[in-house]
Computed example of a mutant assay.
Amino acid sequence: MTSLICPPLQRPLLAAAALAAALGLAHPAALAQNGPQLNLQRIELTAGMHRIEAQVAKASQERQIGLMNRPSMPQHEGMLFVFEQPATQCFWMKNTLLPLTAAFVADDGSIVNLADMQPQTEDSHCSQKPVRYVLEMNQGWFAKKGLKAGSRLGGAPFSARP
Rank of each mutant, 00 (worst) to 15 (best):
M73D: 03
A143W: 01
Q55S: 10
V131Y: 01
K58C: 03
K148R: 13
N113P: 06
H125E: 03
F83R: 08
H76K: 07
M117D: 13
M137R: 04
A115M: 12
A103R: 11
G140K: 10
Q75V: 12
V56W: 02
A103Q: 10
M117R: 11
T96A: 04
S151H: 03
C126D: 04
E122W: 03
A160M: 09
R132Y: 07
V82P: 09
V112W: 03
G146S: 10
Q128I: 00
Q118A: 10
K94Y: 12
L153G: 07
V134C: 09
V82T: 14
A115N: 11
D108M: 06
F104Q: 11
M49L: 08
G109K: 12
Q89Y: 00
G155I: 10
T88A: 04
C126V: 04
P74M: 03
L147N: 02
M49N: 14
G150E: 02
F142N: 02
M79L: 15
G66M: 06
F142L: 02
M68T: 14
N95S: 13
A143F: 07
L98Q: 04
D108S: 07
F81Y: 15
Q75P: 06
F158L: 11
Q118C: 00
K144G: 05
Q128P: 00
P99H: 06
W141S: 03
G66S: 06
A103M: 13
K145C: 08
S124L: 15
S110Y: 01
M49I: 00
K94N: 13
C90R: 11
V105H: 12
C126F: 05
G154T: 13
Q55H: 09
V112S: 12
Q64A: 14
Q89L: 08
A160H: 05
T46S: 15
P86H: 09
G48V: 07
